[in-house]
């Protein structure tokens, strides 16, 4: 079996700021994670993370329907790096985002919204916010493989060695 280290693989997707694009996008990224050898649970969690970050970007960062959201996903050595960039919302939007990312607290039970970034926090290994030169907001997430993924990676290597 070839023991050379695997090259990292990266993907970049730019989409209009419209919620309708999220289901195929989140399923696409989850499928890449599956092909990269991550477990079903990791892929489901990836789907949720992508969904919540892009939904948040559309609703609070790229509110103009003509604006865009950019998602980048990179997979290497059992780690997924995700980055979602929106056009940048108001100062209040940014403050809300920072509070949600760095001091996550679920909203009261009668609120219909406000739980997305709490879920992302819980499912991710690291999360941080950057600001772009032109006021864009970038949310970066790192997710390392779950214990289940060791077996999934082995099965992928065995499958590839049979080809």
């Amino acid at each position: 079996m070839d023991s050379q280290p695997k090259m990292p693989s990266g993907y970049s997707v730019k989409l209009p700021s419209d919620l309708e694009y999220i289901p195929p996008l989140r399923q696409f990224v989850a499928e890449i994670a599956r092909v990269e050898g991550f477990s079903k649970k990791f892929c489901f969690r990836t789907e949720i993370i992508v969904d919540e970050l892009v939904t948040n970007g559309i609703l609070h960062g790229s509110q103009d329907v003509h604006s865009e959201i950019t998602l980048e996903a990179r997979f290497e050595e059992g780690t997924m790096n995700l980055s979602v960039q929106d056009q940048g919302g108001t100062r209040q939007n940014l403050e809300n985002l920072k509070r949600a990312v760095y001091s996550p607290k679920p909203p009261s039970n009668d609120k219909k919204k406000g739980r997305g970034l709490v879920i992302v926090q819980m499912l991710s290994s690291e999360i941080k916010i950057d600001l772009g030169e032109n006021g864009q907001t970038q949310v970066h997430v790192v997710k390392t493989k779950d214990p289940d993924d060791s077996q999934a990676q082995k099965e992928k290597l065995l499958y590839e060695s049979d080809l």
Binding site: D51, N109, D110, K111, K112, K113, G114, G116, I119
Partner: peptide, 16 residues
């Protein structure tokens, strides 16, 4: 198959 935070929000709303 799947529910996100927005979906969970309305489930809590239905229960309440």
């Amino acid at each position: 198959r799947y529910v996100n935070s927005t979906g969970l929000g309305i489930l809590l709303h239905f229960s309440k």
